[in-house]
Nucleic acid binder design. Structure first.
Length: 154
DNA sequence: GCCAACGTTGGC
DNA sequence: GCCAACGTTGGC
């Protein structure tokens, strides 16, 4: 089993939205590196840290689980969507997504400055300078440390 | 709102 | 295939 951190702007889609919906297709990823991780690496059952980006403060809000893989992102075909991709076709879809299912919301939101301060989290991708990738692999140790900081049972 | 970091595009 | 220009992300 692998561990991931997935970023979402809470004004667009927050952990509370996921809580209400229970599951969602992770659409709108338009970065090849992130897509390739979802397409090639993610497996059903993988654990996800739900990260709020562009928030005050940004940080990890809760947990989710990968519940389906290899789904075609429908927004690439929707000309009214900001994620529309004219180069994608039904025969050759370009953007692949996964579905994630809500697991829990942290009792203690873990803000980015706290992640930076934690010695055990040295090397965590999201605390590196200029770390823009919206789907990031996380080591099991880092995952467990962040769960503890958030007040979730590992 | 600023801007550093980084990805993508397109001319050559 | 290089790289300058441009666009986007996302912390601050």
């Amino acid at each position: 089993m692998q561990y991931w951190l997935m970023k979402s702007e809470p004004e667009t889609y927050s952990i509370d939205d996921l809580h209400l919906e229970q599951k969602t297709g992770w659409d709108g990823i338009r970065n090849y590196q992130a897509r390739n991780l979802m397409r090639d690496q993610m497996q059903v059952g993988d654990q996800v840290l739900f990260y709020h980006s562009n928030a005050k403060p940004p940080g990890v809000a809760g947990l989710a689980v990968v519940s389906q893989t290899g789904l075609v992102d429908p927004s690439q075909f929707d000309s009214s969507s900001k994620y529309f991709d004219p180069k994608a076709s039904l025969e050759a879809p370009r953007w692949i997504m996964v579905e994630i299912t809500y697991k829990s919301s942290f009792s203690h939101f873990v803000p980015l400055p706290d992640l930076r301060q934690q010695k055990e989290l040295e090397g965590l991708m999201v605390i590196q300078k200029g770390s823009r990738l919206s789907v990031q692999p996380v080591s099991q140790q880092h995952f467990e440390t962040i769960c503890q900081m958030g007040g979730a049972r590992v």
